[in-house]
């Protein structure tokens, strides 16, 4: 029986097989050795994430002599859970997600941070048509009452947690915004776009992201401007699982920390990695630096 349909089906099968083969060819063969899986919270565009962590994975693989693979995760709580369940070994977390991850994974350690992460800032931005004046002191945030206001992602430290904390210090709760609630744009870039369009009158974004957007000409200064810069707080850091020494040999965690702290702009590839991280060097970090964020997280119910 050779009706046209069977022929099409056969063709389809061939196409499918060809597709499968080409798919397989793009992937390296499976490795029996234990793999170090690194991950990150998705706070950048995927291309940048892939380049940043792809390069880092090859660098670490070369210096530590173990296979290293970057596993992309597309939302903040999933990164935390993947770390807790042991699917990720080394993760570049934000302030809040890092604390969540460490609280859920006893024994997890902070390995390193960048210089800017010790004194991180957020900025409050506003659409010019909203009539908001630059704010001099924290009490000035009261002028945001009754405005349409958006945060970034729910789990973002600089786009949500700390801005909400400073708002609370000024006595502003999300209920006092227009519509009785704040929006959640999902990312810093989306916050900038939405405030610039005027859909939201004001919003909170991470300062480095804002600076990059200004530099790249993505911001129209006649439509959106900074009205306040927050006091500094601790943010991004590398967190590592407790069981790496058992899996990769004694002293592996220390070796890993040394490898990260040892990245220098002198080496060509290491320079690229540091540039992709927007850092000069990685520096060591202490758990205690994140104590204030933990308290804020507990106050606002983001840490239970």
């Amino acid at each position: 029986m050779t009706n046209p349909l069977t022929r099409v089906r056969k063709k389809g099968a061939v196409v499918l097989l060809a597709l499968l083969c080409s798919q397989g060819a793009t992937v390296l063969p499976a490795n029996a050795q234990a793999t170090l899986r690194i991950g990150a919270i998705p706070d950048q565009n995927p291309e940048r994430l892939n380049r940043r962590y792809g390069q880092l994975a090859s660098e670490l693989s070369d210096s530590l002599k173990v296979p290293v693979r970057y596993v992309p995760v597309s939302n903040y709580p999933a990164a935390v859970s993947a770390f807790r369940t042991g699917s990720l070994d080394l993760v570049w977390f934000g302030g809040l997600t890092g604390i969540q991850a460490r609280l859920q994974t006893p024994g997890a350690q902070v390995l390193a941070q960048r210089a800017i992460d010790a004194k991180f800032n957020s900025v409050f931005i506003a659409n010019t048509s909203a009539g908001l004046q630059p704010i001099r002191s924290i009490d000035g945030l009261k002028s945001l009452k009754g405005k349409r206001f958006t945060f970034g992602s729910e789990s973002s430290t600089s786009g949500r947690l700390m801005p909400q904390h400073f708002l609370a210090q000024a006595g502003v709760t999300p209920k006092q915004f227009a519509g009785g609630q704040a929006g959640f744009s999902g990312s810093h870039d989306a916050t900038i776009a939405l405030v610039q369009s005027g859909s939201y009158q004001a919003g909170a974004v991470s300062e480095p992201v804002w600076n990059v957007a200004v530099k790249n000409g993505k911001v129209d200064p006649s439509k959106v401007k900074v009205i306040w810069k927050t006091p500094p707080f601790g943010n991004y850091h590398w967190v590592v699982r407790p069981n790496l020494d058992q899996r990769f040999g004694k002293g592996f965690t220390t070796k890993l920390q040394k490898a990260i702290l040892g990245l220098t702009p002198a080496n060509e590839r290491q320079k690229t990695i540091l540039e992709l991280f927007a850092a000069k060097r990685f520096i060591s970090a202490q758990d205690s630096q994140y104590q204030p964020i933990e308290e804020v997280g507990r106050q606002l119910g983001k840490i239970r």
């Binding site: 998705p42 950048q44 565009n45 995927p46 291309e47 940048r48 994430l49 992309p72 597309s74 939302n75 999902g186 990312s187 870039d189 989306a190 776009a193 993505k218």
Partner: peptide, 12 residues
Amino acid sequence: GTELQLTLQSLQ
């Protein structure tokens, strides 16, 4: 989906 979501988030 990861590609779409992340490119959307960063407005690329």
